[in-house]
Write a protein that binds this DNA or RNA. Structure first.
Lengths: 345, 345
DNA sequence: AATAGTGGGACGTTTTACGTCCAACACATT
DNA sequence: AATGTGTTGGACGTAAAACGTCCCACTATT
């Protein structure tokens, strides 16, 4: 049955939205008993008129009876509502998660795709596609987008597409090069995104971590300086989220730093910074790329990450409080919400 | 699950119509490969513009990829279509039809594809695909398959495929040559099936109908005799079903025989024999190919036929009672069941 | 009897879908 | 290489559906 809903979600997403709307109307009618359109409209967040068109359908179906003194569920409506109950969880499980996450972490928008990226590559792909769509959706002419690296970001890039070439948008890597494979480098991701959308891009041919002296030297390079300035003025920032220790190992941090991270209780990594459970930054180093203050200045910060194992890390980064949009999957969403139970607020 | 769809239908009455529309668009795209809007619009009976809005949705969902040279299903679209198959049966009431047919005619298995082969070539193709899948499914190592000719059988052959070459399976024509076009001859069908599945095949270069004397002579030929023995020992038999008069005309039977068929009330033709409404054989002649007693001996007899006009003929052949599996389409299934209403049992 | 709240009708406006073109582009064939 | 067929995507006017906003007759409760 789960599979059927998923299939329907793909085939007729619009109709499922309608179904949800009507279901909630029915539920509200049952809840508030004999009541009128206007009060009902307020409680289900619809205008009077659009509620009315919905009611016409529901009456047509014989689910509600409408009299001069108000409306109520018909016997059949009652029965349907009962029968619907078990299915509803399937339909709205995700939307409920989205709402909950949005509320819990004060986000502007949350997209949750069904499944667990840890379990299935398809889910990760789906999440990438969702993120790509969101990103293209928030793009305005002239926008500069700074993107991070990572497998998730690479996956997002591979699903970017635009009907019309975004000739005056720029994609720039938010960080320099890291000791990882080429196709998950921020620069690679940025160029891939640009190519797929017909946008323009810049590369940043500099190691991400530099000593103070080397840093100053590189910043003398007009080529580097220019890109860095673009990064720091980006209106949109897209980034993945990782588990602290996993990322630390992958980036081959030295043992002393690893120990420090452990001591500080680092659980998450994002934008090159490490966070503890409460969302506090516990480790930073000079970087040629994006700085924390650039996040505050940016208009839209989009986080993309999924998989049950990343739930806690996601929650930690969200607590840092600079994210506007989150794209994740069901398993991670559930985990992230679990962390709220133990430490509300 | 059935309950779920019923519940959904109450909330969104035209859910099924929309799902069916989009499903058929997807299916048609898969069938016709890279093709354009206009041709596609014609084959799914939509105007170009309204097809376009549907395609927008499907593309948004990442189910079809649409390029300057035409459109095609994405990997995800392929996957969805596969996953949809069982649900589509539920949604369109095909499982009910299948059950009813199975009960009514005492069959082991029935597959009904949506649509009407008379109306749309695509439905016939789909039926062929389904039959091919069934056939490959029942094949065991070492099996000999005897196949009939006809346009439907040719269509089945064109959809055969096997992941691993079936090196020790044999396909043989169940009949000799008939006065029809080459690519619907039983021999052609057998060889096509063998080639597509990596199996082996034998041909039967003999006219189907022979006088007694010529028959005996031909059977002396070791070459012929060998194939005929394979035919008569086949574990699996696959055949089409035709309307009696249509087939009689196509086979150019003489006027006297035609009159006899009419008098006897022949409505159906299969395996070279003619049947009346009750499933009784009303006409037979000596043939080098399959005999009726071979049907009884065979393990699995698979009938494939579709189109509303063939409903009655299908019912007649099924009443003969030697079929195990039937692959048909929605329209023919409905017609075949209608004949049961008037003469139950 | 007054009043708050009800459904339903009406009407102009906005949004959406649709039918119908056309231009730019890819690909195969000549 | 040129040509022609078939493709997508854009544009635009029209038709239809949805919507926002009133109003009115009616009911139940106070």
């Amino acid at each position: 049955m789960r599979k059927m809903v998923e299939a329907q979600l793909k085939l007729v997403p619009d109709l499922l939205r309608v179904m949800r709307k009507r279901y909630e109307i029915l539920r509200q009618i049952r809840l508030s008993g004999k009541t009128g359109r206007r009060t009902l409209a307020a409680s289900v967040n619809l205008t009077e008129r659009s509620l009315r068109t919905e009611l016409d359908v529901l009456r047509e179906q014989g689910l509600v009876e409408i009299g001069p003194s108000g409306m109520a569920l018909s016997a059949e409506g009652e029965r349907l509502l009962e029968e619907l109950e078990p299915f509803v969880r399937e339909w709205f499980g995700l939307t409920r998660l989205e709402e909950a996450l949005r509320e819990a972490f004060g986000l502007k928008r949350v997209i949750v795709v069904p499944g667990d990226s840890d379990q299935s590559e398809a889910v990760k792909q789906e999440m990438g596609r969702a993120a790509a769509r969101v990103l293209v959706g928030v793009l305005k002419p002239g926008d500069v987008v700074a993107v991070m690296g990572g497998t998730t970001m690479a996956c997002v890039a591979s699903h970017m597409q635009s009907s019309t070439p975004l000739r005056d948008n720029w994609f720039v890597p938010a960080r320099g090069g890291l000791g990882e494979s080429v196709d998950v480098q921020a620069s690679t991701v940025a160029s891939e995104m640009a190519k797929r959308t017909g946008a323009r891009y810049r590369m940043l041919h500099v190691p991400d971590h530099l000593g103070e002296e080397a840093y100053q030297t590189m910043m003398q390079e007009p080529n580097v300086r220019e890109v860095v300035e673009m990064i720091r003025s980006a209106r949109i920032i897209v980034h993945g989220i990782g588990e602290a220790m996993t990322m630390a190992r992958r980036r081959k941090l030295d043992e002393r730093t690893m120990e420090e991270l452990r001591r500080e209780g680092a659980v998450a990594e994002a934008f090159g910074y490490y966070f503890d459970r409460s969302g506090a930054v516990v480790y930073r180093r000079t970087t040629v790329g994006l700085r924390l203050q650039d996040l505050e200045r940016a208009d839209t910060v989009i986080g993309v990450a999924g998989g049950r194992s990343k739930g806690e890390a996601i929650a930690a980064v969200l607590r840092y409080g600079q994210n506007d949009i989150l794209v994740t999957d069901e398993a991670a969403a559930e985990e992230a919400l679990k962390t709220m139970e133990s430490r509300p607020g």
